[in-house]
């Protein structure tokens, strides 16, 4: 991020924030197509455990990922209250199962801080950085590393 060249306030990012357990995460809004309520998925064979299955989004078949499990924060037991964030990146559409969406915020890219490697495990590789907001840390999801089956076509 070449922060100096960009004057504050000129280049703003809109982010969607949501929580998993007690932690807050966020995604750039430009990646988000829509947010839908949870509906049961079709189980996929030979898939990594965090891939919940397939959902039908108006005729498009897309995989749904249990984001909590992917980040190493435990299995989500989905209910009708849970939501699926439909993200579009690299020409692929994927659903992310989360508990609830909290807010839409505006941040500037230079506010993002590199996440110090304390957590280790799954989480570390899936975070691009963090934003601090109202005493809370907003962990920015890195879709590329979080969804290894994207583009490369090889899943873990």
């Amino acid at each position: 991020m070449s922060s100096n060249a960009v004057a504050k306030g000129e280049h703003q990012l809109e982010i969607v924030s949501f929580s998993i357990g007690s932690q807050a995460f966020c995604l750039e809004i430009s990646h988000v197509l829509e947010i839908r309520g949870w509906t049961p998925t079709t189980v996929l064979p030979h898939a990594p455990d965090y891939v919940k299955g397939l959902m039908n989004l108006r005729g498009t078949v897309l995989p749904v990922v249990d984001l909590s499990l992917r980040l190493g924060l435990g299995v989500t037991e989905p209910s009708a209250r849970h939501v699926v964030i439909i993200v579009f990146t690299n020409g692929q559409t994927v659903g992310l199962l989360v508990e609830a969406v909290s807010d839409i915020l505006t941040v500037s890219p230079e506010e993002m801080m590199a996440a110090p490697d304390v957590s280790g495990g799954e989480l570390a590789g899936c975070i691009r950085g963090v934003f601090a907001r109202d005493d809370e840390l907003m962990r920015a999801i890195d879709l590329k590393t979080t969804l290894p089956f994207l583009a490369t076509g090889e899943a873990g």
Partner: peptide, 16 residues
């Protein structure tokens, strides 16, 4: 409905 577009090839599964 192909699966490769949004996911990947699955052994034993042709499509959905």
């Amino acid at each position: 409905k192909g699966l490769q577009q949004n996911y990947q090839e699955i052994p034993g599964v042709a499509a959905a």
